[in-house]
C-alpha cells in the first residue's frame, strides 16, 4: 500500500510522456521523401534568414554593363538581371519576401479560420449553417480572382497583398476546421466530456483542440505553396511587392522581356517558386500521413 501511494505521488507531479508526438516524429523520419522535402524547405528558410551572409553581392547594386549576363559569368554564377544586378543574390534575398508572403497569410488565416471553423463546428445547428453559408460566398470565387480583386481594390503594397491573401485563405481553412470539428464533436469522448459538466469552452480547449489542430495545420501548410504562387502573381501584376525589392514573382515579371534573350535566366525565379512550393507540399503530405494514428 505504501509503495502504491508513492507511485501515485510521483505520478501526480511527473511530466506527461510525449507518446503520441514521439510516434509522429518516428513515422515522419521513416518517410524519406518527406524528410528530403523538410531539408529543402528548412534550407530555404535558413537561406532567407541568413541572406546577407550567404549572398555574394548586394542585390540592389547593378550596372548596365552586366545587363542580362548569362548563367556562368565570372563572379555572377547565375548571371545578372535586366538591370545588371547579381541574380544569385537577388534570388537569395528574394526568398525573404517570397517566403514571408507565402507563410504569413497562411499563419494568420490558420488562426482566424480555425477559430471560426472550430466555433461553428462545435456549436453545430443553425450557427454552423449560417457561418458556413457566409464563408461559401467567398469560397465561390476562384482564389486568384479574389486575391486580385481585394488587392486591386486596396492598392499595391506588401501589407495590402498580405491582407488580401489572408482573406482568401480564411474560408478554406475555416471549412476544413469546421468539418474536422464536426466529426470530432460526434465522438463519444466529447459526449463523455460533456457528461463531466465542463463548459463548452473547457471541452474545446481540453478535448477538441488537440484533436483538430493537427489536421487543420497540415491542411494549412499545403496552402503555403498556393499563397507563394498567388503572392508572386500579385507582384507580377504590379500589386503586392513593388520594385526594386527582390521577390520571385516580381523578378519573373521584370525579366519577362528577357525571355527571348536569356530564357534560362528568366526562368530562375520560377524555378525557385516551384522548388519551394513543392517542398512545402511534400512536407505537409508527410506530416499528414505521420499524424495518422491508425498506422
Amino acid at each position: 500500500m505504501a509503495v502504491a501511494q508513492t507511485d501515485i505521488e510521483t505520478l501526480a507531479t511527473a511530466d506527461k510522456p510525449r507518446g503520441y508526438w514521439s510516434g509522429v516524429g518516428r513515422r515522419f523520419l521513416k518517410d524519406k521523401v518527406a524528410v528530403a522535402a523538410g531539408c529543402v524547405a528548412g534550407g530555404l528558410i535558413l537561406m532567407a534568414i541568413f541572406a546577407p551572409w550567404v549572398a555574394p553581392q548586394d542585390p540592389f547594386d547593378g550596372t548596365m554593363i552586366r545587363r542580362l549576363s548569362p548563367i556562368g559569368t565570372e563572379g555572377y554564377p547565375l548571371g545578372a538581371d535586366e538591370l545588371g544586378r547579381d541574380m544569385l543574390s537577388r534570388l537569395i534575398y528574394g526568398a525573404r519576401l517570397s517566403l514571408f508572403m507565402g507563410v504569413t497569410p497562411v499563419l494568420i488565416a490558420f488562426v482566424i479560420g480555425s477559430a471560426i471553423g472550430i466555433a461553428a463546428g462545435y456549436a453545430g445547428g443553425w450557427v454552423n449553417s449560417i457561418t458556413m453559408r457566409v464563408l461559401d460566398v467567398f469560397y465561390a470565387f476562384p482564389s486568384v480572382l479574389l486575391a486580385i480583386a481585394i488587392s486591386g481594390a486596396l492598392g499595391a503594397g506588401i501589407l495590402n497583398g498580405l491582407l488580401s491573401l489572408t482573406v482568401v485563405f480564411i474560408p478554406p481553412i475555416a471549412r476544413v476546421a469546421e468539418s474536422v470539428t464536426t466529426a470530432v464533436r460526434k465522438l463519444e469522448y466529447i459526449e463523455a466530456a460533456r457528461a463531466s459538466g465542463a463548459s463548452a469552452f473547457t471541452i474545446v480547449r481540453a478535448h477538441v483542440l488537440g484533436n483538430v489542430l493537427g489536421p487543420i495545420f497540415v491542411y494549412a501548410t499545403s496552402l503555403i505553396s498556393v499563397s507563394m504562387i498567388l503572392a508572386a502573381g500579385l507582384s507580377f501584376l504590379g500589386l503586392g511587392v513593388s520594385p526594386p525589392n527582390p521577390e520571385w514573382g516580381l523578378m519573373l515579371n521584370t525579366l519577362r522581356n528577357a525571355i527571348y534573350v536569356q530564357p534560362w535566366l528568366a526562368a530562375l525565379p520560377g524555378v525557385m517558386i516551384f522548388l519551394t512550393s513543392i517542398s512545402f507540399n511534400m512536407l505537409s503530405d508527410g506530416l499528414r500521413s505521420a499524424m495518422d494514428i491508425k498506422q
Binding site: K16, L187, E188, Y189, H207
Partner: peptide, 20 residues
C-alpha cells in the same frame, strides 16, 4: 471512442474533478 486519443489515462480520470 469514449476516451480522448490524445489524453493519458491518468488525465482522462483526473479531468472530471478539475471541472468541479
Amino acid at each position: 471512442a469514449s476516451l480522448n486519443p490524445r489524453m493519458t489515462m491518468l488525465d482522462a480520470v483526473a479531468f472530471g474533478p478539475t471541472v468541479h
